[in-house]
């Protein structure tokens, strides 16, 4: 096995480990922190199925973002859609068998890749030109966009313009997945592509990309509006002794 392969195999495993452990740790943190008060942003669903529908509308349609800003919504949405298609089609690198719908999806993979790239670039542009967005942007926002643009760009080049040897890529990835590392194709774009991907995976749990999991724990969106019917009590917020305070208070007659 070449030094290059050894390096990338280790790099890949480290990145994946970071990603999984970090992601789970952060999710555990959100899940285990109590929400002591009912703070759904109303009007909110009055029962659990409604909350599920509300979440689904947010996750699949970015509903609130749509209401908030159509331009950001458009670019953000096409980027995420392109990303979804891209992720799905990567499935076939990791597994031998691909379901037929996935194969069908491959038909628009070029367009998906292009709108993903376009969306990312427009998001970058918005950060530069809209004064409000520019004001709130920090360097890591640009860095993340550059990373994603790099990943999408090299991915597109690999697949559609510069046609890497898919079979050897697949062997390498399958090798990783089955813990039986194979020689990695020494293809410049492929190397850049996976370098960036693993960098992103490492950075993921430390970054704002945690919105992908954190959205489900947002109390303003995941709470049922039933405060009058069902008493919410969390351990630290029970504190009955403070109720005594008023009872022991002397009435001031003036």
């Amino acid at each position: 096995m070449s030094g290059l392969t050894i390096f990338f195999v280790i790099y890949a495993y480290v990145a994946i480990l970071f990603f999984i452990a970090g992601f789970l740790y952060r999710i555990w943190k959100y899940a285990s922190t109590p929400a002591p008060l009912k703070i759904p942003q109303t009007p909110a669903p009055v029962a659990a199925p409604g909350v599920a529908r509300r979440m689904v509308a947010e996750v699949t349609l970015f509903k609130s973002l749509f209401n908030g800003n159509k331009i950001i919504w458009l670019f953000g949405y096409v980027f995420h859609l392109g990303l979804l298609v891209a992720l799905l089609k990567h499935y076939r690198f990791a597994f031998d068998y691909s379901p037929s719908w996935l194969v069908y999806l491959t038909t628009f993979e070029l367009y998906a890749g292009l709108i993903m790239l376009g969306g990312l670039m427009m998001l970058f542009l918005l950060r530069l030109v809209v004064d409000r967005t520019n004001f709130i942007t920090v360097m890591t926002d640009y860095i993340l966009l550059v990373l994603l643009i790099g990943i999408a760009g090299t991915g597109l080049l690999l697949k559609h313009f510069y046609r890497t040897d898919v079979t050897s890529v697949k062997e390498f990835v399958l090798g990783l997945v089955s813990f039986n590392p194979q020689e990695m194709p020494a293809d410049a774009f492929f190397i850049i592509h996976i370098t960036l991907v693993f960098l992103l995976l490492i950075y993921f749990p430390f970054s704002k990309l945690m919105h992908s999991g954190g959205i489900f724990f947002s109390p303003t969106r995941n709470q049922v509006d039933n405060a009058r019917d069902k008493r919410l009590v969390t351990p630290w917020a029970a504190a009955p002794e403070s109720i005594q305070i008023a009872s022991n208070m002397t009435q001031e007659e003036g």
Partner: peptide, 16 residues
């Protein structure tokens, strides 16, 4: 506060 912990992390500075 779950709200605080969650919101500190997940803002993407989208601008909406």
């Amino acid at each position: 506060y779950k709200s605080l912990q969650d919101y500190m992390d997940i803002c993407v500075r989208c601008g909406s």
